[in-house]
């Protein structure tokens, strides 16, 4: 019976997660090329990682990209939006959150093109049109500060997941805790810091870990906005995998790069769940009756 219910999901997981991971691992041991020709080369691809002159730059890019998008937007802005929209009348908050969710419901390419139009270097771009009202010269924001655009493009869409999860977490904090803190003399900021944040630390950790992994494996908007260039200057790890494997046809080496990412993701996810379950076990919540 149990198998009947779990069966389809197990099958899907095996088909779409375990199988690709195994195939990746096998490919990583070959020198498969654009013509799909290749032989077994052992651990050569993994040794190649240490000799890759582009990799340090790519890793640094990844750290910059993940750190700023994660802290400023996916977690930071998500948390701020959740806090703000739960402290205004409920209906207004819901409308506001719905607006923030729109980009996520927009097809990825449309969203990316909207941004490209917004920052278009010619005077017809929206940003430059706005600048012209103030007598400012057109600006090529993508060339001037590509990272800013990349972080903004990802952040505005990435903040919404954190916002949704943290909103429901904040709403589940019993109102009496907040009232008690007010009576105890806490300002709104002190309530957030001493009461709300500690009480939502698990959802917050979840958002942090989940979004770190999501960002580590995402490259779509960077590909759309800068294509990873100039040269490899805005290429992050996941995009590097794509460029090496698909664009350069270096499937064997690309698979080795991808395999590392799979391992990092699996280890992070597993340790997170261990931590979460463990904490849940040692402090079973005691709900006080009303």
């Amino acid at each position: 019976m149990l198998l009947l219910f779990l069966g389809p999901f197990v099958l899907l997981t095996v088909l779409f997660f375990v199988m690709p991971a195994i195939i990746t691992a096998f490919l990583a041991l070959t020198n498969l090329d654009a013509a799909f020709q290749g032989t077994y080369v052992g651990l050569d691809n993994f040794r190649g990682l240490f000799a890759d002159p582009l990799l340090p730059r790519v890793l640094l890019n990844t750290v910059v990209y993940v750190f700023f998008t994660l802290i400023c937007f996916n977690t930071g802005l998500g948390l701020v939006l959740a806090l703000l929209t739960t402290h205004i009348p409920d209906r207004v908050g819901t409308v506001f959150r719905a607006i923030w969710l729109l980009p996520r419901l927009t097809p990825m390419v449309v969203y990316g093109l909207l941004w490209l139009w917004f920052v278009d270097p010619t005077k017809y771009g929206m940003l430059n049109t706005a600048r012209s009202w103030f007598g400012l010269a057109p600006l090529d924001l993508i060339s001037a500060s590509p990272w800013l655009v990349i972080v903004l493009v990802n952040g505005f869409i990435g903040a919404s997941l954190g916002m949704v999860i943290l909103t429901s977490a904040i709403k589940s904090v019993p109102e009496d805790y907040v009232r008690a803190a007010r009576v105890d003399g806490a300002s709104s900021l002190a309530i957030v810091r001493h009461v709300i944040l500690p009480l939502i630390r698990w959802p917050l950790t979840f958002v942090l870990v989940n979004q770190t992994l999501a960002l580590l494996t995402s490259y779509e908007y960077i590909l759309l906005v800068t294509g990873g260039g100039p040269f490899y200057d805005t290429t992050v790890y996941a995009l590097y995998v794509f460029r090496r494997a698909i664009q350069n046809g270096d499937y064997g080496y690309g698979a080795a790069l991808a395999f590392i990412l799979v391992v990092v993701g699996a280890v992070a996810a597993l340790s997170y769940w261990r931590l979460l379950n463990f904490e849940r076990m040692i402090s079973a919540p005691k709900i006080e009756a009303d």
Binding site: R179, V183, E288, D290
Partner: peptide, 20 residues
């Protein structure tokens, strides 16, 4: 007057002890 300036102590029905 905001709550913090009222010199009030309150016991809530749920006690509202901060669990952390």
């Amino acid at each position: 007057l905001p709550p913090q300036d009222r010199h009030i102590g309150m016991v809530f029905q749920s006690y509202a002890l901060y669990p952390h």
